[in-house]
Measured scan of single mutants.
Amino acid sequence: MATDAALRRLLRLHRTEIAVAVDSAFPLLHALADHDVVPEDKFQETLHLKEKEGCPQAFHALLSWLLTQDSTAILDFWRVLFKDYNLERYGRLQPILDSFPKDVDLSQPRKGRKPPAVPKALVPPPRLPTKRKASEEARAAAPAALTPRGTASPGSQLKAKPPKKPESSAEQQRLPLGNGIQTMSASVQRAVAMSSGDVPGARGAVEGILIQQVFESGGSKKCIQVGGEFYTPSKFEDSGSGKNKARSSSGPKPLVRAKGAQGAAPGGGEARLGQQGSVPAPLALPSDPQLHQKNEDECAVCRDGGELICCDGCPRAFHLACLSPPLREIPSGTWRCSSCLQATVQEVQPRAEEPRPQEPPVETPLPPGLRSAGEEVRGPPGEPLAGMDTTLVYKHLPAPPSAAPLPGLDSSALHPLLCVGPEGQQNLAPGARCGVCGDGTDVLRCTHCAAAFHWRCHFPAGTSRPGTGLRCRSCSGDVTPAPVEGVLAPSPARLAPGPAKDDTASHEPALH
């Protein structure tokens, strides 16, 4: 009773807030009518008042009428009001819900409408889902798969039609296919003929059939049928067999079959498995989609049935006599038709004709302190090069084509190399640097090759510096006499390219 009084008091307290929050009759008014909170006449009256005075006034009048009803109607109103779709449509209802007392429970059932309790003993237990329907569909599909699609060729003596089998029958139906081979029951999904010589313990000319048996419980189990008994694959494991010639990621696949039913060829011909030897223990289905393919039931050349050999690369099948050149017997292992072999060759040939990528240039590290003349020119003028003790990398590039010797140069053309002071002394051009340390401070000019250098860098042994005729380390061993002091540049003949010694390969005349 306390809860009923509290709900009535809360409705009177929030009546105006609810009326202002509800700006549309749908969905709240319609939901109240659906849950029998508002009768039909009051529903029509509220809609009429909404058209006349507006939605807030109409709902305020409806809530005032609701306060005169019993506690069950008020409880049902609060339940409908706080439904998710009403809270989404009328956003101003959320503060009312947040301020609702926590001790007021809106989930209690309506009085007088409590459903009768059902004894637990009368409640049926839930049924577990079964796979009976899938099993029945598999039974119905198996006879259809064994139905012949056409008439065999005159040369083929193997013609068999499976008798119709009602689904209610649980007995196995067997077809006489000759040579002791028996087909599987209607619940078998796949059958492959297997030679009895590969099964340990088999006697006589009995041949087993590799099947997948579907049981009534819905589970499946792969086994071997020899005669009327089934054997699990673990009985046929043979770890010492060295003649297993397995197909790549293979499961067994029928390579020879008669049109209309699988079996042995007439005249004692023995149908073979995809792999010879003992049956392997793992009978998992292969991951290669080509091995799941269903080959055609007629020859791809003459479009006739009979004894066919199936290609492992495509769905086509052929007569042995229709092949070019014809085959006398079934080859062992994987067999592919000429079209598949030709496609494989065409895929391999473009790969062989692809040009080989060019090898990157060989990189040879230079000892610290040495650099090529090109690196000396590329440096920024007026700045010493940083990191001189790091190992430089010199790339061996292809030799350029031989060019004509340089033409003779006048001494005026070499004027930018040297600057003559007032006393006739050779001065260095701006930006000249030593080729060893890279520093341009207090550098000297070689009178023979006009290269800038430090005496301490080229002659670290402490050799005394002569007063005139300074030469760098590369030119100090040259027998050519030094030019007379005061000459602007060496003779043009000295600039012609010539053979250089091994220790002077990195010091070429550089223009500054």
Rank of each mutant, 00 (worst) to 15 (best):
D36T: 00
Q172D: 12
L75V: 14
L81E: 03
A134I: 14
A5H: 05
L106C: 01
T232S: 12
A134N: 15
S135Q: 12
L158Y: 11
L66I: 08
L81N: 15
N86T: 01
Q182I: 00
L75G: 07
V20C: 00
F82N: 00
S156G: 09
P101F: 01
G218N: 02
L62V: 02
T16L: 01
P56A: 05
S187D: 06
S107C: 12
V192L: 10
L47W: 00
A5R: 15
R190A: 08
V226D: 06
E51A: 02
K102P: 00
F100V: 01
P233I: 02
D98V: 03
F77T: 02
S168N: 05
A191H: 13
V118T: 06
T72A: 10
K165M: 12
E229T: 01
E137F: 14
S217K: 04
G91T: 04
A160V: 14
V37Y: 03
A134K: 00
S24A: 01
V188G: 04
D36M: 00
N86S: 02
T46M: 15
G208M: 02
R8V: 01
E17I: 00
T72R: 02
S250K: 05
E216I: 00
D36V: 00
R92P: 01
R190E: 06
P163L: 08
T72D: 15
A5Q: 07
R127W: 09
E167R: 03
P176Y: 15
Q189P: 05
P176H: 11
H30D: 02
R257D: 12
L10W: 01
K131E: 02
A246P: 11
K102N: 14
S195Y: 04
V256F: 14
V20Y: 06
S220Q: 00
R92Y: 00
L146T: 11
L32Q: 00
G268S: 11
S195K: 08
R190K: 05
E207D: 07
S24P: 00
L81W: 02
R174W: 15
R203K: 03
P233C: 12
F77Q: 00
R79S: 04
P101M: 02
D198C: 06
R190H: 08
K52M: 15
Q172L: 15
T151V: 15
V214H: 02
P56G: 04
A193T: 12
L7A: 01
A19D: 04
E17A: 07
A265P: 07
S185K: 10
G150M: 03
K221C: 09
G155Q: 01
D76W: 05
G180T: 08
R257M: 05
G268A: 10
R257N: 00
A19S: 09
G219Q: 02
D103I: 03
K253G: 05
K165P: 00
G228W: 00
P200I: 06
G251Q: 04
D105G: 05
E45K: 03
V188M: 14
P95E: 07
G263V: 13
G240Y: 00
P162V: 03
A170Q: 04
D36A: 03
V20R: 00
P109H: 13
I181V: 07
G208Q: 13
L210R: 04
L10C: 00
K83I: 02
K221Y: 02
Q94M: 15
G242A: 13
S107T: 07
S156W: 15
A33I: 00
A271C: 10
G180V: 05
D23P: 00
G260Y: 12
Q225V: 01
K235R: 13
Q225K: 13
K42A: 00
A205Y: 02
V214G: 05
D103H: 08
T151Y: 14
L62P: 00
L106I: 00
Y85D: 02
L11D: 05
G54D: 07
L28P: 01
